[in-house]
Design a protein around this nucleic acid. Sequence first.
DNA 1: AGCACGCCGACT
DNA 2: GTCGGCGTGCTC
Length: 713
Amino acid sequence: MTLFAEVVLPVPLRRSFFYIVPEKHKKKIKKGMRVLVPFRKNLLTGYVTALRKQVPNHNIEFKKIKEILDKEPLFSPTFLSFTKRLSDYYFSSWGEILQVSLPPSFNIKTRSVIYICEKGRQYLNQKSCLGLERKILEFLAKKPYTESYIRRKFRTRNFSSVYSRMRQRGWIETKKEIKRAPEREVNVIPSQPAQLEMDYSLDSEVKDNADKIKRTVGKNKFSSFLLFASTRRREAVYLYLIKHAMASGLKTLFLVPEIGLTARILEKFRKKLGQNAAFLHSRLSEKQRELTWKRIEREEADVVIGPRSVLLSPIKGVGLIILDEEHEDSYYQRENPSYDARIGARIRAEEEKAVLVYGSENPSVELLYKSKKEKKLLDLYANQKTQFRRSIIDSRKQAGIISQTMKNEIKKRVEKKEPVLLFFNRHGYASSLVCSRCDYTPKCQNCDVLLTYYKKEKKLVCRYCGYSIDLFLRCPECGSKMVLGHGYGIEVLEEELKKSFPKSSVKSLHKFAVKRRMEEEKVIKDYREGKIDILLGTQMLAHQPQLPESSLVGVFYPENLMRLSDFRAGYKTFKYIREKTKFVKNNKDSEFFVQTYLPNSTPIRCAVLEDLSFFYEHELRNRKVMGYPPFAFLAEILFFGRDLRSVAKKTRKLLDMVEKEQNHIEILGPSLAPIKRLRGKNRVQVFIKSRERSSLDRVLRKVLKAIRTRKSL
DNA sequence: AGCACGCCGACT
DNA sequence: GTCGGCGTGCTC
C-alpha cells in the first residue's frame, strides 16, 4: 500500500502538497520531519505535516520523497498546530513560517549553476557575438554563477529567451547543485535542574497580583493577563513567575520589542538567569544563531528571550509566555513573514495550554479594553503617582523654536550643574528643501518622500531607504535659489541651544550625529560623567540602555505624531510623551516640560499630567464613535509591485469582489500607502472593516483565494 | 514566488 | 512571417 506524506514548502503558497513515501522510508518517516522533495525542477526542503494512506485527488502524478532529513521530528504536534493557526489567521504560507522558525542552514535546496561550454568560449572569440549574449558569456567565462544570480544581474526584458537560445545552441549548460547544511547532531542532554537565587522583593500589592498569575501556571490550561505596571514592578513579577515555571519544569518564552529598547531589563535577566536563558536577537551571526538554536533544542535553556521571532522557537514544554511592552509597534511586521506577535503569542499559548502575560506601563487601548472586560487586568498603576512637577508650554503664546520659559528652566539647571535631557523627534535641519521660484522639491528616487536636509552633512537624505545626494543651492529645474521647506528638525534646535547657551556643552544624538554604536555609547558615557550639560536627541536617545535620569526633561512638539493619518495617532502621541517621563528623576525638585502648539489636545494633556484613566476613557469613546478597534476589526491589505497600474488593477479586482460579498463590510480606500513607494515598489493599501472578525475572515478567505496576494493582516 | 504556455503587436 | 511583450495558470 502506498503511503503519502502531506508536505508544506517554503514557498508563498497557502496549500500543501502530497508526495509518495518510498518503501525504505516508511518506518522512518514521522510528522514534523523535514524532507527533501522534488518541486518543479528543483529539490526543496519541505515539512511533513501529516501522513496519509489516501489522498483526495487521484488524477495527478505524485512525486516521491527524495530524502528524509531528520532522525527525529523537529516540530512537535503542538508547534505544528500553532504555526498552522498562525498562517491561517494571517493568510500566509505555513511552509514559510516553518522555514523561518529554523536556522537558515536547515533549509536545503538545489540550485542551478550555469557553466560556459567549449562552444560558448569559441563563440565568444567571434565578432558576431554581441549584446546581452556577449555580456553573459564574458561574465561566465570567469567563473560559473547560479542561475538566479545571472537573472538578477542581467535583468532585462527578454532575458529568458536569450538564455534558452544560448542553452539550445550549446554555449552554456546548467548543473544542479545541492546546497547542503552541516550534519545535525541529535543528542539530547537532559537540562540541568534550575538553581536560582533571586532577591526579588515584592511588596504586598505586587505579590498579590503576581500570585494571581502564579496560581494558573502549570495547570495545563490556557489563561492570559495584562500586567499594567511600571518597569520595575513588571520585572519583579516576571522573575517571580519564571522561577515558578522553572520549578514546575516548564519553559518560558520572553518576548521584547527590540533589543535596544529593553536593554536594561535584558541585562538584569542575563545576570539573574545566566545559563538558564538563551538570548536570540538580530545582532547574532548566523553561526551564533544556530548554536543558540541547538542549545534550545537540546533543552539546555529554560527561558528563551528575544524579539518576535522567539515566538517561532520550536521549543517543547512551554508553560509561560511573557510579552513585554505589549503596545510596541515592532510586534507587528508586514514581512518575513507577516504576523502580529501579540496575536501569535495568544495562539501559541492556547495551543501549548500555557499562561500568557502581556506587560506594559501604557498598554494599547485595544488590549486594555479587552482585558478589563474579561477581568484579566492587573492594574498596578492606580496607586503609583510620580512626584516631579509637570507642565505644558503653549507655543502659540511664546515665539521661537525654544520658548523663553524653557530657556529659563534650562538655564537654572545648567547653573546648578544639573544635566538636561531634551527630546525632539524630527531628523535633519529641515524636512525638505524647496525652490524659491518653481516649487521644485527634491524627492527620493526609490521611495515617494521628500528628502530631508542635513545642514552639517551638506546632504539631502531619504528617511526610509537612506538614499542621499549632495546638497545643491540652485534649483536644477530653473536655477533659482533653494530655500528651507516646511518643518524644522533637530539640527535647528541644536543650533538654537548652542546660541542661547554658548558656555554650555550641547550634544545631539541622532542617526546622523553618530555613525557607529561605539559613538552612541561614548555620548552616553560623557553625559554620565558630566561632560555634557544639555543632551538633545531623537527617539534614538530614548533607546539608549544606559541613559540616566535627569532633573529636567523636555519634549518638543510631540504633535508631529498626531498628524499621522492613523486611528492610533492619539495613542502614539500619548505613549511617546509617557516614555520620556521615565527619564525624569522621581522627586519633588525635578521637572518635566512639554512644549507644543496643541496644549489642549487630550493625548498630550493626559500624558503630561499623568491622567491615564481619562485618556483611555476618552480614546475609547472616540474609537467607539468612529467605529475603530476595539469596537471593530480592521484588515490591512497591502498591494505592491513595480508597476503602479497593474498594482491598482489587482486592488480594484479585489475590491470588486469584496463589494459583491455584501457582508456589512466597509471598505476604506484604496489609497496610496503611507510610504507609497518603497525600494522601487509602488504600494497601494486598502483597509476593510467590520464589526465581526468572522465576517471579515470569511470574505478575506474567499477573495484572497482568487487573487495573487501575499501579505495581509 | 517563479516559470511555462499562449496569444497579439512591431520588427528583421 | 518571427520575436518578444505580458496575461494566465500551475506547482504534488
